[in-house]
Design a protein around this nucleic acid. Structure first.
Lengths: 187, 187
DNA sequence: GTCTATAGCTAGATAGAC
DNA sequence: GTCTATCTAGCTATAGAC
């Protein structure tokens, strides 16, 4: 067997970059090949089901990253909830590169993408709400209040990403992260 | 001259439907032709610059609709600000069909769309903030508070649309509209 | 103003050499 | 495992009849 010219992780990183910036419909196989440093046929060797499988790999990769970084920071039992929240938000800042990068959920959920990945997007968002609900409860909110605030948090993150892109002002995302933190801690 | 088979307004409505659900990259000329009831070549007769011009017509149409409905309701001097706010939010509910429809700003602002329409998206968002700032001031907020709240409002609207789509639960959008109203009036 | 027909190209995907 | 070459289908866009 020939050695892999490009590592699996590097490939997924390249695919991620393209899908996040261009969306599912807007990402062509040429774009994906160029971004990974492989030729189209080689991409098909790695992902026999084509573009759909590539996008699935991206979703899986991002989900894992979020689990291991954002959620782990938020749920780490060795730390008090106030600090965990701060750490989790710092990971979110990294995930979206300070507001410059688009959320995969958004990038993959126009009509065609939603048809293919709607279930994964839904489950992913539910997880975010579950994790933020937990930290809300540990910050002394009632379960109902905690779930409400978790949903508001997700809405603020998603909304601030859209508005940050639209107005081309990254302060908005940064201010929103601070707003989320204060909103949890002022209680 | 032959009579128009399809009225200008009907054409723009068809184009709007396609661009909002599929995005700029995902909307093909076949989709656009089918949705308008015209053939591709006839669409080119109406829009000589092709797909780009069609999307511009959609942006113009939505901007006008928002001016004449959302903004007019919010700025109508014959009504007290509290009622204007309620009326404006009702128009927003209509604009997004209770959360079922995507915002054009979002639909047209992945990489390729943002390249073409970034300026219009930016100006559009600025207008939303300007108008909500005005009503905040009339509800006795300081200019700074009013502008902050206006930005938060835009973020909530955009975020709730994304999360509503992702979780496939329209209550989220509806609850957000109520939240926005209460958030302005509780002062 | 609308249509059929088609140009020219790029899309996603595959075959088979190395 | 990666590549060049290629297939077919679809894309955006145009020409020209009616």
């Amino acid at each position: 067997m020939r050695p892999q010219k490009v590592l699996d992780k590097e490939i997924v990183l390249g695919l991620t970059k393209v899908f996040r910036s261009k969306g599912y419909e807007g990402a062509s196989l040429k774009d994906l090949a160029d971004a990974t440093g492989l030729k189209k046929a080689s991409l098909y060797h790695r992902f026999p089901n084509g573009k759909k499988e590539m996008a699935e790999a991206v979703l899986t990769y991002i989900n894992e990253w979020v689990e291991e970084n954002v959620f782990q920071a938020l749920l780490d039992n060795n730390t008090i909830p106030q600090v965990r929240l701060k750490n989790g938000l710092a990971q979110i800042r990294t995930l979206y590169n300070g507001g410059k990068e688009v959320c995969v959920f958004r990038a993959l959920s126009m009509e065609a993408g939603l048809e293919l990945f709607g279930g994964q997007v839904k489950n992913g968002m539910k997880e975010w709400i579950t994790v933020f609900t937990k930290i809300g409860i540990e910050l002394q909110l009632s379960p109902k209040e905690a779930e409400d605030k978790a949903l508001q948090t997700l809405i603020k993150i998603q909304g601030s990403l859209i508005v940050t892109k639209g107005l081309n002002t990254i302060d908005i995302f940064e201010n929103t992260l601070q707003d989320i933190e204060e909103n949890y801690l002022k209680i």
